[in-house]
Amino acid sequence: MIYLLLIYAFIIIINVPGLIKRKEWRELTAFSILYAIAFALSLMYVLDIPVPSPMKGLKHLIVDILGIEYPQG
């Protein structure tokens, strides 16, 4: 947990001041969105909240709904 906060603080320190100084608001917005996603995911991981796996959904879509699958074995 503490490592998580440290790492994410580090990411902000590295990126944000330069962005603000150069007035790159578009970049800052994109950064913030992704940063928020990353932080949320990490927080979920650290707090043991199950993170949905996109591959599981994909497998469901392809195998169970579309019915495409290689025979096992």
Binding site: L6, F10, I13, I14, P17, G18, K21
Partner: peptide, 17 residues
């Protein structure tokens, strides 16, 4: 100058970490 400060902090951070 910003990148300079950035580099200093990052190296300090890495060192401490």
């Amino acid at each position: 100058e910003a990148s300079l400060i950035k580099k200093i902090t990052s190296s300090i951070m890495i060192f401490i970490l």
